[in-house]
């Protein structure tokens, strides 16, 4: 064999005190065994903050844009019923396309980065929010609407003062589902080069502490957003509070 290739020293020389000794008995620590190590987690929690912040950004931006689009569409469809079927079908197809596949389908068009991830994430929120807004508006009892009209409110006033407030619980329910779903999907955004908690998860799948912390943060974030939307909804609809959830 050619000498240069064959003679590469595997461990030997070099290093000049750089190489740490990992062979002695003490080597079998929790960390090098890829275990669940509370002490390590506490000491290294800060390295998850940047991905977490990024994850929050990815999620919140997607929810904001997704909500604006689907809320507008739903208001349009509320009066023009024929719009419902095509919107549901179109957003339904978007919702069905697997996220990983969608990221890769978008890459040749929009390139790597935040934009690609957002397009995918937003497209998954549309169906959920649209459907709940429409169902919420439909659920408003027609005699309430009639009474409002009888009091002299015009269409616009009926919508904003009666129908939307009464539909808020259903709308919030849609937003909550969209939020938890988006948090989960955003953990794949790193495939599109957009960062998020998927980054550290995938960087060391073997290390249980790592997977547990990063995955746990995903779940906590989802719960936090869920409770946040719930709290806002309760604030806005004081009349529902008497009814047990």
């Amino acid at each position: 064999m050619s000498g240069a290739l064959g003679s590469i020293p595997l461990l030997a020389q070099g290093g000049e005190g750089f190489v740490r000794n990992r062979e002695s008995g003490s080597g079998a620590s929790c960390v090098s065994d890829d275990g669940v190590c509370p002490a390590w987690i506490v000491d290294h929690f800060d390295r998850y903050m940047e991905p977490l912040g990024r994850h929050v950004l990815l999620t919140v931006v997607a929810l904001a844009i997704g909500f604006s689009i689907s809320f507008t569409l739903a208001l349009l469809a509320h009066r023009r019923r024929w719009l419902i079927a095509p919107v549901v079908q179109l957003t339904g197809i978007l919702y069905t396309i697997p996220s990983l596949a969608l990221f890769f389908l978008l890459l040749p068009i929009t390139g790597r980065g935040f934009l690609t991830a957002e397009i995918a994430l937003v497209s998954y929120t549309l169906l959920i929010i649209f459907r709940n807004v429409v169902t919420g508006l439909d659920g408003v009892p027609s005699d309430v609407v009639d009474a409002a009209r009888g009091m002299g409110l015009n269409d616009r006033q009926v919508l904003w003062r009666v129908e939307i407030p009464l539909a808020l619980p259903e709308i919030a329910a849609g937003l909550r589902i969209a939020a938890t779903t988006t948090v989960g999907l955003a953990s794949l955004a790193f495939f599109a080069g957009a960062g998020g908690l998927g980054d550290p998860i995938y960087a060391d799948l073997n290390f249980k502490s790592n997977v547990l912390v990063a995955g746990g943060l995903c779940v906590l974030l989802a719960i936090a957003l869920d409770l946040l939307v719930l709290a806002v909804q309760r604030l806005l609809t004081p009349w529902t509070r008497a009814v047990p959830a």
Partner: peptide, 19 residues
Amino acid sequence: SNVGRAVPSLVLIALFIAF
């Protein structure tokens, strides 16, 4: 079902591989 949605599928697979 709520928590299920929040657990990223990737994490689930990763945990399974790990454990």
